[in-house]
């Protein structure tokens, strides 16, 4: 179980996270939704301290880490146990797809070259990118790059996978392949926190949905509860607006 307590983060005067508390069960796929600028991405980035919060603790695999303090050893340990998939893929540009996946295995997990290569090839196969192993990121499409990035995160065998809007930088055409990959990973039992604007996808892939607004969790429940019977006024407004956009332009 992973427990986050009282996570607070502000950028200057702008309070982004206002005391987030949440417990994540092993194997949970938690979808995080909400309007722009409510701290969805910041929440993920605080969990592995890419962003340093003012306050907040995380308990993971029985160990508690104070996220507001710069303790290099603890933070490295935490990062080794979490995987991150970024909105803009962030692949290492001077390395091939295979080398991208191998990098963490070699440098962080200190595996031998052969072991790392074998493990990386397995991961690339898992995301359907084995045939592109020797291609550099700039020769891959956005969707392909993101699949390699997912393989890179999975190769580290993290206890928690953080996905920060993994499809929002992609052409509509390429979203499908990435969502398909994420769905497959979710079904394999990885614990995931998924920030996305793909409401339908969140609804199908996650077993718990959190609605963030103003740095607070205002809705927390199964996808059915949150999408069909939201209790909070802000959530209702959000879905109403979304539904308005989904309506046909003309009705005869």
């Amino acid at each position: 179980m992973i427990e986050i307590t009282n996570l607070k983060k502000k950028f200057r005067d702008n309070i982004v996270l206002d005391g987030i508390n949440m417990k994540i069960q092993k194997g949970d796929v938690v979808g995080i939704i909400g309007p722009s600028g409510t701290g969805k991405s910041t929440l993920l980035r605080c969990i592995n301290q890419l962003e340093q919060p003012e306050q907040g603790k995380i308990q993971m695999d029985g160990k508690e880490i104070d996220l507001s303090r710069k303790n290099k050893k603890e933070i490295l340990e935490l990062r080794k146990n979490t995987g991150m998939v970024f909105q803009k893929f962030n692949l290492f540009e001077k390395k091939t797809a295979l080398e991208n996946v191998m990098e963490g295995l070699l440098v962080v997990q200190k595996k031998s070259r052969e072991d790392a290569k074998k493990a990386a090839q397995e991961q690339l196969e898992r995301v359907g990118m084995a045939a592109w192993a020797n291609h550099y990121p700039r020769h891959l499409s956005g969707g392909q790059q993101q699949r390699v990035a997912i393989a890179r995160a999975l190769a580290m065998k993290p206890s928690l996978l953080l996905l920060d809007e993994p499809t929002s930088a992609l052409d509509p055409e390429l979203v499908g392949e990435v969502l398909e990959t994420i769905k497959k990973v979710a079904e394999e039992g990885f614990t995931m926190l998924l920030v996305s604007h793909e409401m339908n996808f969140i609804r199908h892939v996650s077993n718990r949905v959190i609605f963030l607004d103003g740095g607070k969790i205002v809705e927390d429940g199964t996808p059915r509860q949150v999408f069909e019977h939201p209790v909070n006024q802000r959530t209702v407004e959000f879905f109403t607006k979304m539904n308005l956009m989904n309506q046909p332009e003309y009705v005869i």
């Binding site: 890419l50 290099k72 290492f92």
Partner: peptide, 18 residues
């Protein structure tokens, strides 16, 4: 060098010097 790649390296658990 783009901050994205540095963040990705950090997220993998690399130290600054790695």
């Amino acid at each position: 060098v783009g901050t994205g790649q540095i963040e990705a390296a950090n997220a993998l658990g690399m130290t600054y010097f790695q």
